[in-house]
Nucleic acid binder design. Sequence first.
RNA 1: GCCUAAGUGGCGGAAUAGGUAGACGCACAGGACUUAAAAUCCUGCGGGUGUUAAAACCCGUGCCGGUUCAAGUCCGGCCUUAGGCACCA
Length: 802
Amino acid sequence: MNMLEIEKKWQNYWDTHHTFEVKNNDTKPPYYVLVEFPYPSGSGLHVGHVRSYTAQDAIARMKRMQGYNVLYPMGWDAFGAPAEQYAIKNHIHPKEAVQENIKTFKQQMKNLGFSFDWTREFSTTDPEYYKWTQWQFLQFYKHNMAYKATISVNWCPNCKTVLSNEDAAGGVCERCGNAVEQKEKSQWMLKMASYAEDLLKGLDDTNFANKVKLGQINWIGKSKGVEVDIDIVGGGKFSIFTTCIETIYGITFFVIAPDGKLIKELLPRVKNKEEVLKYIEETKKKSNMARTELNKGKSGCELIGIKALHPITKEEVPVFLGDFVLGEYGTGAVMAVPSHDQRDFEYAIAHNLKMKQVIAGKDTTNEAYEKQDYLNVGAKLINSAEFTGLTVEEAKEKITAKLVKEGLARVVNNYKMRDWIFSRQRFWGEPIPMIYCKDCGWVPMAEKDLPLLLPDVAEYLPTDDGESPLAKITDWVNTTCPKCGKPAKRETDTMPNWAGSSWYFLRFMDAHNDQEFASMDAMKYWNRVDWYNGGMEHTARHLLYARFWVQFLYNIGLVPHKEMIWTRVSHGMVLGTNNEKMSKSKGNVINPDDIIKEYGADTLRVYESFMGDYQADVPWSTESLKGCKRFIDKVIRLKDKIGNLTGYQKDLEPLIHKSIKKVEYDTLHLGYNTAISTLMILTNALQNKEAISKEEYHVLLTLLNPYAPHITEELNEQIGYPPLCESSWPKYDEAKTIDETKIIGVQVNGKLRGEVAINTNEEEKSVREKVFNIENIQKYLAGKEVVKFIYIPNKIVNIIVK
RNA sequence: GCCUAAGUGGCGGAAUAGGUAGACGCACAGGACUUAAAAUCCUGCGGGUGUUAAAACCCGUGCCGGUUCAAGUCCGGCCUUAGGCACCA
């Protein structure tokens, strides 16, 4: 039989025996292994998918053999712009394109022998699934967590859609790379910012890798500071937020955001209205990126006629407009202390403004003396009335206390994370189940009427004015108000593709439930996701959205834990042989189908496990892949060495027990490459024997099975054992993992001068005797006095001489 | 600029608690088998001094310092690369 036939044979066996299908009421302990479900793109499975699916498959298969009821599910995240773009280009319904792609993906996964429970498969585009996505949106709405707001949003003129801040990172559209513009639009929002503190705290109840946690923390972006009220001369006031209250005596002007609310209030009192309005208009045209780039020169203008009072000294201070202040962040106004903030410093230079140094320790004529330099170095205040002479740290506390006591300020936490813009002007997404009635306003659809299906239409191009394609389908849009029964209109925006992926891992726990999104019993049985693997690029946003979604469901009593994901790990990319990201245009794409055809699925799986540090990017190497093929061939040939022996040969016993221990450990600690190398070492050792026993061969096959499931099943059957997928993982005996003898290094004054063979745990006295008999060691001891003899049992000897 | 991760042979990488640096694999070189090739097997493989061959010695984990009997690993200061964030107040 050739490789492909063997692979087919066992894939069929697993299918017909329902080997990987799991029940929710099993008495075995549950174990839930999850990989990010893919977006089924037209280009098929990427070798990068193979890397992480194989790694998690190895965990799943090993855990099964160890007696767990392992849930390893797969599904499809199929809403979103690429499918819609593809459909528009090829004049087919996105649904058809998606179905086609799913078929390809699924076949490729089957060809690789991944042990998914296919009975739980679903796509986010299935009405039976998005019914519950819509239902959950209604819960957000009913718990006052969803609202509509007219806001300045990121608008991509090319994709004709609104983007979240996250999607528009860097001021360019994530999808098409076009510059993002600002546009006023009415959008559905989810109150994610109100969960900032909970999302931060929740991290303590997870086992995420440290860098993943840090990613979350950075996105949430908590900063502690003081919000200070500022009176405007002639009436009115505004607030500023600062993290550097110690520099308050250094204020020489205020700057407010041109896109904020405050300027609208102040405008009637401004004397240079024309200049100000012109500047506001200019700002609107700039995307965040342009705003960043163009403002090297610190643009802005003074609000003539407006003066504000310094909160403590009550001196009159000028107020400026500047687009480096963002309307949406903090209070949309800042105190400017040019001597202690480089950005303020540059603005002051550009507009010829006064400066006042209030912290001693550096000359501030040419640049500001900033907090990263003056904090924690004992710097003291100057020019600060009664606070002069205090250290910066003391002043921070005392100034805050004074302002708070006088009712002028509040200690607040500020978060970068904002509410989630939840509307998209697209066709290919979950319709938002809301109805607008002239009399009743926004009314949620009745839950019993869900799902609100996407209409089957021929035309799904977005309109030029930014309305969703759904707006054109009048018989879908026109409906009646669920409250008063009068004619009303449906919301035509759809949900972002982050929506469906925010809770899919819950659905896998109870994929066919038509009464609820997943039953509490099912979720309690599976408990939570034990392993969640995905790309680093999703560890910030997707994970944050998913955690927010789950925490909300928890707060309304619908899921058993506030955090439903325990361990999150991320894998490195598989790069082209030239060390660059694989892409069609670079011509460095490796297609897994070709590799399977030529070398077999097991070779591909072993190679991708072995190729390098799992968390780091690795370039593809076909030469290295061939080495893995050689390894598998070697394992196959080893069968011919089986002789008339039974049990483990004495001298192999420690290696076998060590190998079990190491493969087991490495498989659960991202050490897939060292697990494979351990198996190579074991294989080499067996090969060096005249003959081996069936038991020895069987243990090798069992250990290799999670990585190379087809060939190991086949060889295992040939030597007369029951299928490995129904067998147990071997147990190692800790006592037997220890070698009887060991060779350790001998150093003199910390330099390696020889080695010595010792018995494990040999007494120092006898080791000492051996060591002093080594000729080369004697050379170094001659005529010297031994000051100290260091023996670290089973590790090293170091002799210190004088 | 800030945050995070990383920097080890020709290459991918290993070293799980500070204890013989370079496991395992690739590439390469030499040899065996073969009419030949492929496959397979054996040997070598960080740099250098040295030797008939060994032995032995010196240098070596981005750079400079430090702690320690002992540092790829810990500490301080730099440099470089990748990813993320960024006029964030």
